[in-house]
Write a protein that binds this DNA or RNA. Sequence first.
DNA 1: TAATTAAGTCAATTGATTTGACTTATTTCT
DNA 2: AGAAATAAGTCAAATCAATTGACTTAATTA
Lengths: 406, 406
Amino acid sequence: MRVIRGKSGTNQEGTSAHNRRVMIDALRLNGKLSRADLARASGLTKQTVSNIIDDLEQDGLVVSLAAVRNGRGQPSTPYRLVPEGAFAIGLQIDRHVTRVIAVNLVGTVLVRAEANLPPGGPAKGVRVILDLIRQVRIELAGVAEHSEERLVGLCVAMPGPFGLAPDNDDQWMMAAWQSFPLLETLAAGTGLEVALQNDAAACATAERMVGAAHGVDHAICLYLGYGIGAGLILNGELYAGGNGNAGEIGMALLPPSAGRPERSPLEHRASLASLYQHLNADPADPKLHDRLNTLVSNADPAVASWIDAAAEELRWGVQLIETIFDPQTVILCSSAPEALTRRIFDAIHPLLPSIADRRGRALPRLQLGMTDPWSVALGAAAEPISRAFDPRFSAILKTRASAGGW
Amino acid sequence: MRVIRGKSGTNQEGTSAHNRRVMIDALRLNGKLSRADLARASGLTKQTVSNIIDDLEQDGLVVSLAAVRNGRGQPSTPYRLVPEGAFAIGLQIDRHVTRVIAVNLVGTVLVRAEANLPPGGPAKGVRVILDLIRQVRIELAGVAEHSEERLVGLCVAMPGPFGLAPDNDDQWMMAAWQSFPLLETLAAGTGLEVALQNDAAACATAERMVGAAHGVDHAICLYLGYGIGAGLILNGELYAGGNGNAGEIGMALLPPSAGRPERSPLEHRASLASLYQHLNADPADPKLHDRLNTLVSNADPAVASWIDAAAEELRWGVQLIETIFDPQTVILCSSAPEALTRRIFDAIHPLLPSIADRRGRALPRLQLGMTDPWSVALGAAAEPISRAFDPRFSAILKTRASAGGW
DNA sequence: TAATTAAGTCAATTGATTTGACTTATTTCT
DNA sequence: AGAAATAAGTCAAATCAATTGACTTAATTA
């Protein structure tokens, strides 16, 4: 059959779905709002808002609070989101460990669990993961009623890039995970909708739901993990690129510079991998996090020299990101200990001049984001919530599968 | 009054507007389609498509062609866009000249006019511009009936970045234009809706409507003009950033490299400004374009050495763009003579390895785009057409102003 | 106490999409 | 040649989310 290119249409269902999402989004951003407030915020009529809020209340997604007098006129009844209205599971697969988190509608972490990934590759690892997920779901059911019915999905976060030939020099066998049918296996094993993000994107998702990017429509999350990547919030949505690899700036080649005659990827100069190499540390050492903490608080000179070198690259990276994306803010996140991340953050300053250097900025050019080792898993958990409840273009459109009646 | 944050809702009007846009988009992409084809492409029912197409035919935006037999079943009646269904004006303001173009619904250029900008700044210049626009509209009315009723808007393209303090070392007084209330003056002087884009964005808009980015949802246009910038097509829409300055990569600071001990902006190394400086040429010289052409065809060594140096920076730039955006393709555009642009294009190759280096690519990693000096003006003219007829999220949403009935 | 203001509801209307049956025109099978 | 199958497209009624305008309720202000 001839392929016809074109975008999808929409109908009343799409309209209604969008308006529900708009209500939830407004409540998430403003905490609590009356029906009249929601009508003003959305541009919809009071009546429409009333209908939608009634629905959402029925669905257990919002509840009313005590009426408040706001001066003249009938007191308004504010509504807020019900945290227990929905749940999602986030899974992080890292080189040595895997983490699973359960969150609720407002992004509160309810359950977390961690396990070491056994040697033997994905086939064995996925069994550990499925067990961990099962365990988290059971625990979740213990602390939250109806959690199973209200589970909206699962998202996996792991280092990218995705879908490339596994010819890169990745000694941590993440490449093996790339060729393993992970999403299918997880979908079958959990019965949930499964999504995939790289770790920087997950970090951005977390910052958007409960962090520094909350309510910000244009923000870039610079995530310093084992590698380095950027999570792109553009027009209020995570941008994934043509093949899901947008923001993988660790692979950006830097021009030769003083002392480095070769072009080399940013990842080799500014990433925790480069720090470990600089320190001759074993990345698989479970006590590494604590050891790093100690080194930082002791002002270890080897760490300090790495920080200075990395901060110089990152200072440049921030300027580049500002120049390319013109975001409202850039957020520095890391899986490194908070003290170390803060040291790096400080060392990046003063920032280079850029187009972001404008008067009357509402947000700082660079902010410190989450430094919790769990933040990537949290972001993964936030993704299904966002997919299910945030206003987005794709949520309005008809899906091809559901089209009938030709 | 308390400010409530939140997104806009939608209703049947939004649905209908979107579906009309989807039909137009599908016809633009596929050339001609029957009602049944459109139903399949959009996921809407045949009946809905029939209603919309009837409307569009009434509005003079589509026409039917002769029925065609496609095998079994009743022959289908294809429809196509009517080029004369809408018109738009594009205005380019450059350092020395201003150009005005009129296009129709399918992006065909109908009228073009050019004038030198007089010394004396924007106040004088804007009078020249308004005269030029008036002249183009009169000429357009001569070659296209009902052009005035069907004029959907005006877009201005000029070098960015916009909205910054005019403290930069811009000797061509583009800074003066920044502080001048240009859009308001043009809106009042023409009675049209006026939009603004930087020149790289305009170039991308042109490539998307009639060039290499036609029907491509993720493409980056690298525009080599007096400065250098990138036009970002993300998710099928032009991305402007938080303040309309996304893609202004000319201001990206490059690390020091061999022979350049200082950080310097990309613009100083790879832009026509840098070429003019290298050649000791006067950018205001009206014969410069022709002279450059001659130099290129004579294999002038000064030009060749500049090309090599610039290509090295651009090769890096392409790799960076691929790494950051993960686009389906990168398009090299320029206001330089085609021969020169082609030489640069060739000199950029071979490209650096990147995540774009994947098997089974549908599009080349780097393509040569428009090299017409008029392409920025064309892109500006394409913007109102795109704004009026392309499917986009914002077109679905209610505008706050139109909300009533609280 | 009456007027004003604002939140929220009620019941009827609107209007784009959907549904399912139908007509028309062509090819393919017998 | 005739019947069956297939596909395009229309007709008329139904659906359903948003809208409209009048109304009720409950507070403040004059």
